[in-house]
Design a protein around this nucleic acid. Structure first.
Lengths: 190, 190, 190, 190
DNA sequence: TATGAATGAGAGTTCATTCAT
DNA sequence: TATGAATGAACTCTCATTCAT
């Protein structure tokens, strides 16, 4: 089957792939639809057959991401607020991140843009909820900082360490270890 | 002195102020020179009298920031690589950050853009050097993570905590405390 | 019979109905085939099964209208050019108009477009012929004006009076009365 | 002075002239800014230096027109509602129309468009006010029709009679005569 | 009797930038 | 120390239309 056959029926997916790659690499605003279309060897209008707007492409990318996180939060809600639960939460979060690394890179590096995108607020809500599950009740400022630091370091970590030599999985483990330490320190048994 | 007097001779400064504010709020790409000019009640052409390009405005903004950091690094180079030195390093860094918060917010939220701007590489170099001063020789991956986490949390902290109630100085202290903990843990006496 | 039964075999008709409604309401250029298709819950391509082009839809709409008018003109041609004939002509014309009000509204409000559409010239010819039947031989300028004014007022009247309260039939009668007056004044017994 | 000198400082005016001509000839939607720009031998961007949007060009065109009409209405308001006043009103209106014929042609032929343009509502208000000044109190439907017919015939007349041979001023007089007849018939002394 | 997927052309609009004055 | 006028390139988006299935 030739390349034109392969293209049948999965153009939408291909748009998402290329878009994510370019958005992550160059930023959302700097990536034009012309560029995406050219890389796919279709016309700009074809993109509009599959997505209503440029923003719609981003939204569709985040839909795949939102579900695992929502499930994670849901799972957390059903558990007792113990240290063990928290440690499991960020371990699972670490895995979720690893599974959607380019998307997180995009988010991390385009925060100004995210704020204007409809998806931005949505994502911020998730983060706030997750943070709440990691915090003790009536947390002190320092405890707050430790928790947000744990989460944010995980977000940034994957890309910042790109330049550092070493196995990706080893890096992830190292980040997870530090994050676990942070939330452990922030945990207070009542 | 009336507002027209105030304007005498400090237009350059006013451009920088407005530009920084808008860049930080809306992002670099989303902020047009028209917008900046309008808010200053001058024409776009006037901006070009003071700055060669749009990027030039950003570069000029970072110049004020670069010096304190360079001095900090220089100071660090002259000290012995003790835990105390490291603790002082990040304490001073924390103060430098607080003094240039909007600029850091801009940087933090426009990383994709920064990478394309000439200033990006420059700043990354500084960060690498600073990290090196905080790390023990032949640091393990976990130690690396702790250090970058310390620095990164300081960058992000100031803005993330904007929504949290509380005195800014108290927040800064809390962030500094966590960062200090992190580099302390990463320190290894030889 | 359910709505899916109703749809059998009369899609063409439904396209015409929706198209006329939208053309009249928003104008020809502002109404896209996408819009028509969406309102019918079919795809754009389906429209192309029934009509060769967008213009073709308009043409088809006018076909229903052209026949009664052609018959009217034909009838007029067979009558002696008396005042009574003329009065009957515009009375019949008034009824024809009332039976195709939306189409006339469309014509009235999209004259610039009509001129470029093939149907435009055709319709103009009809009007000219009709005018000739109403005019005395070697009509003066004023007589000409009275006659065109009669016809034109009938065209415009139905829609202009939309905002005025009152029974539609009463309005039509009033318009007809004025138009009849006008052509009566323009009539000159030889 | 060469053609490039002539262009200095009157580009705005030239845009208006060309735009009006093209809008009247081809319709608003069918006339693209590219077309206008090309005919003026400037870039599209130049148009945007002088006007904020395409609609803004139309609005600017109507501003010149609105004033005379507003003055006319104002004048009418100060007069007693006699037959003589009404006759003078439409005579003056006839002159105003003649002075802005292309604009009225545009309006007449792009009513569907006008309705969506911000200027549309404004103009409709003027017409309603003018009509009120011509109508007797508690006018019958027929009287209403006569008055609107007078006004509308004046609007349409100038262009409809374009194909008819004869001196334009003679045509105007003929139209005015018919219109005067109409409002005279509609006048009722209390 | 339709649809899914795509195209080519073009629309209106905005941007950073230039330059004579 | 600025402005007025303009440009060229790019942008997002929409449209009428086509064609294999």
């Amino acid at each position: 089957m030739g390349s034109s056959k392969q293209r049948r029926g999965n153009t939408r997916q291909r748009i998402q792939d290329v878009a994510l790659e370019l958005f992550a690499e160059q930023g959302y605003e700097k990536t034009s639809l012309r560029e995406i279309a050219e890389q796919l060897d279709v016309t700009k209008a074809a993109l509009y057959y599959h997505f209503k707007t440029k923003e719609d492409i981003v939204v569709s990318l985040f839909e795949d991401l939102t579900k695992p996180i929502d499930e994670l939060i849901e799972w957390g809600r059903e558990q007792p607020s113990t240290l063990d639960t928290k440690q499991q939460l960020i371990e699972r979060y670490s895995l979720a991140l690893a599974g959607a690394a380019p998307l997180f890179r995009f988010m991390q590096e385009n925060q100004a843009t995210m704020r204007e995108l409809s998806i931005g607020e949505m994502f911020k809500d998730r983060m706030t909820t997750l943070l709440d599950q990691l915090l003790p009740p009536d947390a002190t400022m320092t405890e707050r900082v430790r928790c947000f630091s744990a989460i944010f370091s995980m977000h940034a970590g994957l890309f910042v360490l790109k330049d550092v030599e070493g196995d990706p999985e080893e890096k992830r483990k190292a980040i997870l270890e530090v994050a676990t330490d942070l939330i452990t320190q922030a945990h207070r048994a009542d």
